[in-house]
Computed example of a mutant assay.
Amino acid sequence: MARKKKLVVLTGAGISAESGISTFRDSNGLWENHSIDEVATPQGWQKNPGLVLEFYNQRRAQLAEVVPNQGHTILKDFEKYFDVTIITQNVDNLHERAGSNDIIHLHGELTKARSSVSASMVYEIGTKPIKLGDKCKKGSQLRPHIVWFGESVPMIEIASEMTAMADILIIVGTSMQVYPAAGLIDCVGKNVPIYIIDPNKPNVSLRSNMTFIEEMGSVGLKQLFDKLTKK
């Protein structure tokens, strides 16, 4: 039996937006009326942990109200034909809920909490809130298991290794402006086909092996699925 080709997919906020999840920032540079500095930096956490916890508690509550969309389910369907690894910048669990099996979360996971003194002490919390006074086993306040701006991205090395193994790379729903995730495109072999799906063409260096599909994630993925799985 022939080896399945390695399909690596980098997903961003655009794919989850179709499920009703707000993208990271709107045109005013805000996220749900909060500045990034207030809710997505270690400094914001130190300044006002209550605000940060409430912000992510609201995101978690929103997550309980939404479901995976067709884009997520198509990525699951790709597994019938390819060895699929999804590298996501999203902190939601919609890829998991759609049934995808190999997912790397670059920026953390909303459904987990972790110790504020030990990044290795991680707890599954689902969509429950984290409150001031909720502590880890070491007695320190729990914080969202989110990689904030200014923090290292622990999974980027594994993501880079996976991307370097790709026979095909799909990029969907990301502006390719947030690093180090945006740099993953440079890890693929020079002859590896790259498909970029987004209504707005991201600002990336053009290559001969690059194809743009200027559609929403679900529409573009359906077109690409039909193309790549034709016998």
Rank of each mutant, 00 (worst) to 15 (best):
A64E: 14
A64S: 14
A64T: 01
V66I: 11
V66F: 02
V67Y: 12
P68R: 05
P68Y: 08
N69G: 12
Q70A: 15
Q70E: 15
Q70V: 15
G71S: 12
H72K: 03
H72V: 07
T73C: 06
K76N: 13
K76M: 04
K76S: 04
K76L: 06
D77H: 12
D77S: 15
F78T: 10
E79A: 08
E79Y: 02
E79S: 06
E79M: 07
E79L: 02
E79G: 00
K80L: 11
K80R: 15
K80H: 13
Y81T: 08
Y81R: 08
F82Y: 11
F82I: 05
D83G: 11
D83L: 08
T85C: 07
T85Q: 10
I86A: 00
I87W: 11
I87M: 00
I87R: 04
T88S: 11
T88H: 08
Q89C: 05
V91Y: 13
V91Q: 12
D92P: 10
N93W: 02
H95N: 11
R97S: 08
R97Y: 09
A98H: 05
A98T: 07
G99A: 08
G99C: 08
S100V: 08
S100C: 15
S100W: 07
N101P: 01
D102A: 14
I103V: 14
I103M: 06
I103T: 12
I104K: 01
I104M: 03
I104T: 04
L106C: 06
H107K: 11
H107Q: 09
G108Y: 05
E109Q: 15
E109V: 08
E109R: 05
L110F: 14
T111C: 10
K112I: 01
A113L: 04
R114Y: 05
R114F: 06
R114C: 06
S115A: 06
V117K: 14
V117G: 00
V117N: 10
S118I: 01
A119Y: 02
A119T: 05
M121H: 09
M121K: 10
Y123N: 00
Y123M: 02
E124K: 13
E124M: 00
I125R: 00
G126W: 01
K128T: 03
K128P: 03
I130D: 02
I130A: 05
I130P: 02
L132F: 01
G133T: 10
D134H: 08
K135M: 13
C136R: 06
K137A: 12
K138W: 01
K138N: 10
K138L: 14
K138I: 01
G139L: 11
G139F: 07
S140R: 14
S140A: 15
L142C: 04
L142K: 00
L142W: 03
P144A: 01
H145L: 03
I146W: 03
V147D: 10
W148G: 03
W148E: 15
F149A: 10
G150V: 13
E151P: 04
E151I: 09
V153G: 07
V153W: 09
P154A: 06
P154K: 07
E157M: 06
E157S: 13
I158R: 09
I158F: 00
I158M: 00
A159C: 13
A159H: 12
E161N: 13
M162D: 01
T163E: 09
A164G: 10
A164H: 09
A164Y: 03
A164S: 15
M165N: 11
M165L: 14
A166N: 05
A166S: 11
